[in-house]
């Protein structure tokens, strides 16, 4: 009986340790740091400027005015720990958020103090809660400053001095979660000017450019590659075949052709045909089905001068016959290419 109780107790302790560890790893709980006790200080009659004194004259270029150990010691003359106060009293990341806001936002405390009669809580409303993240949200700004015109005109620079570097993701009208790459095209087509408020030209051109350098995508050694991740070189034929058309969103045919030529798997590269037996034959015409399914794969090697390779067989009177599918129609003139290859 005693042994069973001891075992149950041991299991309970181990379980508690495991759950506590998981909570810490998942960011649910931090063992060492706690929110700064803003509310307790306010209730005790400590005013904001007692700790954040320089804020009274702070302009848009003044450094951050977080309290130092010395300002804490003015009241807490017998600290319970010699370590820096804000090493424990304040959540991790708070200093970073404040520093980023100072760097990326054109904001002057001095200009706001007079119209708000020195009422800091008008913007820093979280001071009433047990929370040390007092940065006002943008919704708080919009409570006084109606920015409808600025939103419509994508005129964000007045406050956000470098949005393309700030990486401050909008909370509502655009959501850049991890799979945004799958759907960014349709959003960019409708609101390219919205994208341009944060992103530079090279963000688009590094994928969609016709003159993109070949190496940089391979060199993100500190972070994972975003689009062609992992063993893409091994899978790309499968992905291209399964999603015909997707490659052409970024790449020109020349991309495929030059790479296949250097690898010796393109037509005319002197390495022989990469196609299996019966690819082109009288009994099993696999290439026809493949070409209709995924013309882009064929175009990687056979477009341009390769058009003549097709037309040599696929014309009326030749073994390939009429290339047009039933009901085919086109508004092109017969003198335009590729019509002129046959209809001259």
């Amino acid at each position: 009986m005693m042994r069973r109780r001891r075992r149950s107790f041991l299991v309970f302790v181990l379980g508690a340790v495991f759950v506590a560890s998981c909570a810490s790893v998942l960011g649910l709980r931090d063992n060492t740091r706690r929110p700064f006790e803003h509310r307790a200080h306010v209730i005790a009659g400590v005013t904001c400027v007692d700790c954040h004194g320089p804020i009274l004259t702070a302009t848009s270029t003044t450094p951050t005015v977080l309290p130092t150990n010395e300002s804490c010691l003015e009241c807490h003359d017998k600290p319970h720990d010699p370590a820096p106060c804000r090493g424990c009293h304040g959540l991790p990341g708070t200093d970073d958020r404040v520093a980023m806001a100072r760097y990326y936002l054109a904001y002057s405390h001095r200009q706001h103090l007079i119209p708000l009669s020195g009422n800091c809580a008008r913007c820093h409303e979280n001071v009433a809660r047990a929370n040390d993240s007092l940065l006002p949200t943008m919704a708080t700004c919009l409570g006084c400053h109606e920015h409808r015109g600025e939103f419509a005109a994508r005129d964000c620079d007045k406050c956000h001095v470098a949005m393309e570097e700030e990486h401050n993701r909008p909370a509502s009208h655009v959501v850049h979660e991890a799979n945004f790459v799958n759907r960014h095209g349709v959003a960019a087509a409708a609101s390219a000017d919205l994208c341009e408020t944060c992103h530079t030209e090279r963000d688009c051109a590094s994928c969609h450019g016709a003159t993109t350098a070949w190496l940089p995508d391979d060199f993100e050694v500190a972070s994972p590659r975003a689009l062609h991740s992992g063993a893409f070189m091994a899978r790309h034929a499968l992905e291209a075949a399964n999603d015909p058309g997707s490659c052409m969103s970024c790449h020109a045919e020349e991309t495929c052709r030059s790479c296949h030529a250097s690898a010796g798997i393109a037509s005319g590269s002197g390495f022989g045909s990469p196609h299996p037996a019966n690819w082109v034959g009288l009994t099993a015409n696999e290439h026809g089905l493949a070409a209709r399914r995924d013309p882009l794969a064929c175009a990687a090697c056979h477009s341009g001068p390769g058009e003549m390779l097709c037309v040599g067989c696929h014309k009326v009177g030749a073994v390939g016959g009429n290339p047009h599918s039933p009901g085919f129609e086109s508004s092109r003139r017969r003198t335009d290419r590729p019509c002129s290859l046959c209809h001259f």
């Binding site: 209709r292 013309p295 290339p323």
Partner: peptide, 11 residues
């Protein structure tokens, strides 16, 4: 595909 490609006709 570019409209000048033969594949714009057969695909």
């Amino acid at each position: 595909l570019p409209a000048t490609s033969i594949f714009s006709v057969i695909g």
